[in-house]
Design a protein around this nucleic acid. Structure first.
Lengths: 224, 224
DNA sequence: GGAGGTAATCATGTATCCAAAATTTTTGAA
DNA sequence: TTCAAAAATTTTGGATACATGATTACCTCC
């Protein structure tokens, strides 16, 4: 049946859209795998129409590909795509941070401060789920503070693209700890209100491709 | 009938998609205006299905909005959206330039050089169409040289979003000349292979919001 | 047993049909 | 004449039906 989190009155298209996206995220639908409209339609006991519309939307967002007249498949994420997206997020977050740096007030800074403290605690307790939630909130905080909604939306979309793809995002403690230290440094830069430094730090350090590549490869392409 | 540039074998959905996008770009479909599926269907003498699919795709790209059960309208571009997109393009082009700066070779640089020379000539002759084409090529050159395809794609999409919206992009000679001088400066920076400077220059000068805002407002919201 | 060609099957792309919600028009009473 | 309620119409959301290109299965011939 439908996943429970769906609004009762949502359109069938939206229900199917969320369902399929979730299936892709969980890896139940694997990259390269074929998606057959009729199968899904049968599964939900609805017609192909809303299925097709949902798939079209997923295509626009890069999750599936329509091969004309030949089928619909879950898109593969190549190393090149992942690293390009990674780097792009770095550019965007750098820009957002530069904007945010000059707009942060005392309250924002102490919010970030508190988040880092809780992150440290979570790491100490090996509570990586909690850490990830806090990490997300840390980033959301300064991204929103940039005041640029388009920038924010695009970043969210890109992150979904790589995080919600069929990946068992394994936790790599070493990686998390590295990221944590970088958050501390970033906070320090925010306190100095140094926009240029914030930009550079995020783009060239926090999201630096070379430094993170081994971890990225490990979490996306490790055997198991 | 169909616009002439359409491939013969394209799907109806794709034909309609391109047609509608073009209509929006030309301003034949104005922001806020309602799009009725049946009308278009009748116009092309095809069924509503491909129309709907095309509209869905346009929605995903931000050109139209589906108001559930109430209709489909051409999206308004607010000042806020335009300026946010503008700023975001600056961030992205800055990042692309930083990457490109270290990868440019002699040939690339002399290509850019030649383009600026032709741009200058075009400006002298008040040939703004030609200038715009060259301007586009200048940007494409270093964007592609970044080597990051995702970055490139996103920039293209954003530019389409603001340039292909119902706007009579008037030419403002003063603006074009300002941009031209900035291209010269950028070229100089590329020659120095200074990535950081290239990033900052594009983000904080060439795409600087405050400096360009009057021009933007003039081309998007002028009365006539 | 393998290669090549042909028929059967299947999935997509499009058309048509139906139902429900929203909008517009009409009607009727104050 | 005005305004509200009801009827008629329009429009979207979804279901069903059909056509065509692609894939698969099968069969023949070597």
């Amino acid at each position: 049946m439908y996943p429970k989190f769906l609004k009762e009155h949502a359109s069938l298209k939206d229900k199917v859209y969320l369902y399929l996206k979730d299936e892709i995220a969980r890896g139940n639908l694997k990259p390269g795998e074929r998606i057959k409209e009729k199968e899904i339609a049968h599964q939900f006991d609805i017609s192909r129409t809303p299925i097709r519309e949902a798939l079209l939307q997923l295509e626009a967002e890069g999750f599936v590909r329509f091969l004309p007249r030949r089928g619909i498949i879950v898109r593969e994420l190549t190393v090149k795509e992942i690293t390009d997206v990674w780097q792009t997020i770095g550019v965007l977050e750098g820009g957002a941070a530069a904007l945010a740096a000059t707009r942060m007030n005392k309250r924002d800074l102490s919010n970030l401060e508190r988040l880092t403290q809780r992150m440290e605690k979570a790491l100490d307790e090996d509570n990586y789920d909690e850490y990830n939630r806090l990490n997300l909130r840390f980033h959301e905080t300064f991204l929103k503070k940039s005041g640029n909604e388009q920038l924010y939306e695009i970043i969210i979309r890109l992150k979904k693209r790589i995080y919600e793809h069929p990946v068992k995002m394994v936790t790599i403690p070493e990686w998390e700890r590295k990221a944590f230290r970088e958050h501390l440094e970033l906070l320090k830069i925010f306190k100095q209100k140094d926009a240029q430094k914030a930009e550079t730090y995020l783009r060239e350090v926090h999201w630096n491709l070379e430094e993170n590549l081994p971890f990225i490869l490990k979490s996306y392409f490790q055997e198991e």
